[in-house]
Amino acid sequence: MAERPNDDFDAVLEAFQRYDSFWVVSHIHPDPDAIGSQLALAHYLRRHGKRVEVLSRDPAPRITQYLPGSEWCRQTPETQGLDALVVVDVSSKGRIGRELAALLEPSGATINIDHHATGTPFADVASVRTDACATCEILYDFFQYVDEPIDRDIGECLYAGIIGDTGNFRFSNTSKKAHYIAADLIERGVQPHKAYEHIYGSMTAGQVQLLGMVLGTLQRSDDGSIAWLKITQAMYDATGTTTEDVDGFIDYARSVDGVKAVALIGELPDGRIKVSFRSRHEDITVDGLAAAFGGGGHRYAAGCVLEPPIEDAERRVLAGLKDLVSNAPSDQ
């Protein structure tokens, strides 16, 4: 076995060996790291003869449907009373969605594998590493630790999670290790151009039209340190798009010169307001603000869901961002 990166890997391995059936679950509005983690783990467990159901409250996004095993993703469990619940890329159980959580009562253990810094412990067995760029990095280390072969199918899932959470190696969580893992996965057959094309390199005509509308809502604070974008349900209706089609839109606001923190404020089909936060300043962290609103995430990328109307949500978000920016150390 490889050198141990985390003492909890022994407990995780023991749980995987003890139980025969698993739900593998991730957070609402799953992203490439969530789906990549779920599918990589499902491949591993199925290889060892386990029964696995891959679940999330919301459908897997279009950009992840190229991944091997994506057809396993479901929104409701097929069977009740499985042995164990594995929750990946989630720091608080509520993040899997109340509706889904109410349906999942394992007869055995709950296992949590995650890399978020904020949250509420909820699992019987956990491996949480906040220094990892993605949950898929933790799973890569786990597979190395237990001498599990990483074939191309698992490799593609892990690579998707890593480029998803690092912004294709652009964000501040990109590490030397992330590049090392990527190189190793490429050696194992992963095609970087294929992953990039699916996750970052293609948009539908409706998405392009939606992007134009959203960019037209760009606003900035008086001092230019905060920028925000808005999306209404009417925009989705006019372009034939959905909430999953806005991935990456917030980066346009983040790229504006002089901006330190940004938000994307959008209406959900049920009327609630989804808010995404980003920071481009090392002393401004947005995970605490998201947590204060009932959400969570990472230091420089986080989110939450607020009650309508969107105008009230916008006021609350801007007040929170202004407090963050005003309390940050000066660049001077």
Score class of each variant (00 low, 15 high):
Y236E: 07
D89K: 03
S56M: 07
E71H: 14
V52S: 01
L41Y: 12
H193G: 09
V25T: 04
Y44V: 10
Y66W: 15
D237S: 11
H116K: 11
G36V: 02
I28R: 06
L289F: 00
R4N: 14
T285N: 13
L82T: 05
Q75L: 12
E53H: 02
R98T: 10
T242A: 02
F293L: 09
V246A: 03
A227M: 00
D89C: 09
Y66L: 09
D124R: 00
R95W: 09
L104R: 00
T243C: 12
R152Y: 08
A42W: 03
N6P: 15
E244K: 01
P30S: 02
F293W: 11
R278G: 03
L103V: 12
D151K: 00
F122R: 00
S225W: 07
T243Y: 07
T166Y: 08
E99K: 11
R51G: 14
L82A: 06
A109T: 14
E78V: 10
A160G: 10
F169A: 03
D8T: 14
R98G: 15
L158Q: 03
T217Q: 00
L185H: 05
A263I: 03
A34E: 09
P30K: 05
D8G: 10
V87K: 08
A132N: 07
S255N: 12
L211F: 08
P308K: 00
W23N: 06
A101H: 13
L13T: 14
P106N: 04
H29F: 14
I162C: 05
Q38P: 12
A253R: 10
G240C: 02
P121F: 01
F9M: 03
D184K: 04
L55F: 04
L13I: 05
W72Y: 05
D7G: 14
